[in-house]
């Protein structure tokens, strides 16, 4: 069982991407996309916008249309019924297409990773999206069930390169 690293198809070069990230750093517009999640992560996303965490202090704003979005906040394991809508919404997002996959569902399919009705998380659909001509320039995975508001903020920081990610693949001998 080999773990595969996903290499994004580079049209936006690394340099371009960094430049673009630099530009949106102080005002990131996010679009929230629920692909069949239980609502747990979704209410935590709203929580991030309300007084206790107030991400508007970083210029983060929730927008109504994917056409205006810099970052897509994706929750849920991607059910088969929502996939076509997901494609439609993601295609509308301008390049660089940045996705923050929030919660265990979006990252690894959570408890329904092997159900007949879901696709088991965002990593499983990336090649399908590529097949449809949708390239995702940067993805950050935020585990958590539900991801706590702080974890979401941390994820955004990793996305923008403000902090270095902490987790690395580890192999230890027992």
């Amino acid at each position: 069982m080999e773990i595969q690293r996903q290499v994004p198809v580079e049209i936006f070069s690394r340099k371009d991407l960094e430049k673009a990230l630099q530009r949106i750093k102080k005002s990131i517009w996010v679009f929230h996309l629920n692909t069949g999640s239980c609502n747990g992560c979704d209410i935590e996303i709203i929580d991030v916008l309300t007084p206790w965490f107030d991400v508007e202090r970083f210029g983060i704003k929730l927008v109504a249309s994917p056409r205006h979005a810099d970052v897509v906040l994706l929750t849920g394991p991607i059910t088969i019924k929502t996939f076509p809508r997901l494609v439609k919404a993601l295609r509308a997002v301008p390049r660089p297409r940045l996705v923050l996959a929030i919660g265990s569902c979006a990252v690894g399919g959570n408890i329904w990773f092997n159900s007949y009705a879901t696709l088991g998380g965002f990593p499983n659909v990336i090649d399908k999206l590529n097949e449809l001509g949708i390239v995702i320039d940067k993805i950050v995975y935020v585990p958590g069930c539900p991801a706590r508001p702080e974890a979401i903020i941390y994820g955004v920081a990793v996305m923008l390169g403000l902090v270095e990610q902490k987790t690395r693949y580890k192999k230890v001998k027992a």
Binding site: P143, G144, A151, Y154
Partner: peptide, 17 residues
């Protein structure tokens, strides 16, 4: 809880026996 990562592969931890 600060587990955010750019690669899914970074989210694995293996213990070898």
């Amino acid at each position: 809880f600060e587990l955010a990562s750019e690669q899914v592969s970074d989210l694995y931890i293996d213990v070898e026996h």
